[in-house]
Design a protein around this nucleic acid. Structure first.
Lengths: 252, 252
DNA sequence: GCAACGGTTCGGCGCCGGCCGAACTGTGCC
DNA sequence: GGCACAGTTCGGCCGGCGCCGAACCGTTGC
């Protein structure tokens, strides 16, 4: 009922491992049930339920009941942006060699959803491709779609007609915590991702924010955005001294 | 040493009343000493010292020693943006009538620093004025200074020459938590505020983020930005039930 | 009706961490 | 040197909250 009164309350909610894990999972943009979130956060269902109640109460999450399930999801893009900005600060100045690299971590670095758009190496690569072709101008301040880009996106099947009706930010740059570069967020970013899902070029992992490229996507993304095969594989682009064995990583 | 490893840690740091109070005070962009921060957060100096050590350790704050004092300040614009985004979420959907209104609160709503630029009614009013004269285009995605605006700012004494050298975001929109509208942030916002301080048009409150208009500022801001006297007084613009003042909004 | 299952509420346990005062360090000023 | 004062470290207290299991509620399916 009471919604969050001040920033302390909000930050404290995020500042708990179990809740943060749940929020991170929901940053994939999906809706998940309490039991799924309990499993992901490695706590009992009762504990998860308590956490979720707090998050809903503070309006960080919303919940809908369908059949006998209750689906939780991020309440608004503003919340998603906040979480992303916290993540960005957390990623500051941590020397890459100190960052643990697990197979799952690599999958996230390769491609993941960032609430409703694409992030990771793939997200940045697509942004780069759109910029290189002058379809999008992405300054740090925000972003702009060129007329050329508008036509391209329309051909690609992205619906931009709703832009006027919606109050959503149209196109903005989102700092990628793993790549330290920008990818495309906002309405354009969301629609791009949606179209890739519709085309079955990309598929989400059920439990994490990771996204994988389907065989169809491999050719599609190559032909449409000119991405080279190396960019389209989940393996790290370069075998580093301290990195995990390549073979193990490539599978995912 | 260890910097923040993940978002839980960062959020937990902000999620404590004493630390959040300190961070909020430092969001004014000033540097403050440990004793000052202890006083503001209403904790002992020893407790404050422990909190500050944690914040510095996590790279949310930096500290410099000068004379016998140690000055703490926000470590980076990224941290400032994070805090602002948390504040924005905290302000969501809390009906205005439920927000406590104290004299100090009113001062903050009137004008305050937002890390390094101006926020509050005054900040929004200046942004509105610049937009109305076509000096600045401020979409939700970001902002752009027109050639006309470039000339105006240059005449006003704002240094934009450093823009190319700096990696800073040039001009962006920052959501004002009290007004629910945008004001100007980024390099342009920072330089505007700096110039107003240099001209002695504005003066900061020592202990809070509040900013007050000097007599010189009253005439200067009126002549330069065309702000009406009513906008330039700290008193609440109109004693309304809980609605935002219509006149101020109509301008846009 | 009952059984199965998703989800929440409740009571109680245990620990983390925020708090303080006192002791200590370190710097500047006389 | 000696005093004053900013700041940190340490030991110990204590409250809050995260956790669980058990009981309970509601919906679905038989």
């Amino acid at each position: 009922m009471a919604a969050a009164a001040n920033m302390v309350e909000v930050a404290a909610l995020v500042g708990d491992t179990a809740r943060a894990t749940m929020l991170a999972a929901l940053m994939g943009g999906q809706s998940l049930t309490a039991t799924e979130l309990a499993f992901l956060a490695r706590v009992s269902r009762s504990t998860a339920s308590e956490h979720l109640a707090k998050l809903v109460n503070a309006r960080l999450l919303t919940v809908i009941s369908r059949r006998r399930f209750r689906y939780y999801r991020i309440a608004s893009p503003l919340v998603a942006r906040m979480l992303e900005s916290i993540k960005a600060v957390a990623a500051i100045e941590v020397p890459p060699r100190h960052q643990p690299r697990s197979a799952q971590d690599d999958a996230l670095r390769f491609a993941r959803t960032c609430y409703d758009h694409l992030a990771g190496r793939l997200g940045v690569a697509i942004a780069d491709a759109l910029i290189a072709r002058n379809f999008v101008v992405l300054s740090e301040d925000g972003g702009m779609v060129t007329n050329l880009g508008r036509r391209f996106l329309s051909d690609f099947g992205v619906d931009l007609a709703s832009e006027l009706r919606s109050n959503r930010i149209f196109c903005r740059a989102c700092l990628d915590w793993s790549e330290r570069r920008h990818h495309i967020a906002g309405l354009v970013g969301a629609q791009l991702l949606r179209r890739c899902f519709d085309l079955d070029w990309l598929a989400r992992d059920r439990d994490t924010r990771a996204v994988k490229v389907t065989p169809a996507g491999r050719t599609g993304l190559r032909d449409t955005f000119g991405l080279d095969p190396e960019t389209l594989t989940a393996a790290a682009p370069k075998t580093r001294d301290h990195a995990a064995p390549v073979a193990a990583r490539a599978r995912r």
